[in-house]
């Protein structure tokens, strides 16, 4: 059993890395890019019986810093 966690900076929190990627894309001639936000994907191998609630607790306590980040969980 697996879960995939997406961690992104919250809207309104400056993402200088995403901004640098946007600059680079623009400089390379990709002129249709209006914004870039960079985040993380964390894949978890879970034991049988693990629930989405377990993963949510992991996100709240470690995987995301909810002061600045939001997360989404995919159970796969």
């Amino acid at each position: 059993m697996k879960a995939r966690v997406h961690v992104m900076l919250k809207t309104g929190v400056l993402d200088p890395q995403g901004e640098a990627v946007r600059h680079a894309l623009t400089a390379m001639g990709f002129d249709k890019v209006e914004g870039v936000r960079q985040g993380k994907v964390i894949d978890l191998d879970l034991a049988e019986g693990a629930t989405q609630a377990d993963v949510a607790e992991m996100c709240e306590k470690l995987l995301a810093n909810t002061v600045i980040e939001r997360y989404e969980i995919e159970m796969v």
């Binding site: 400056l14 200088p16 002061v67």
Partner: peptide, 10 residues
């Protein structure tokens, strides 16, 4: 409270 982000100038 709060958090420390990547420097604005990277």
């Amino acid at each position: 409270p709060g958090a420390l982000l990547r420097n604005a100038g990277l």
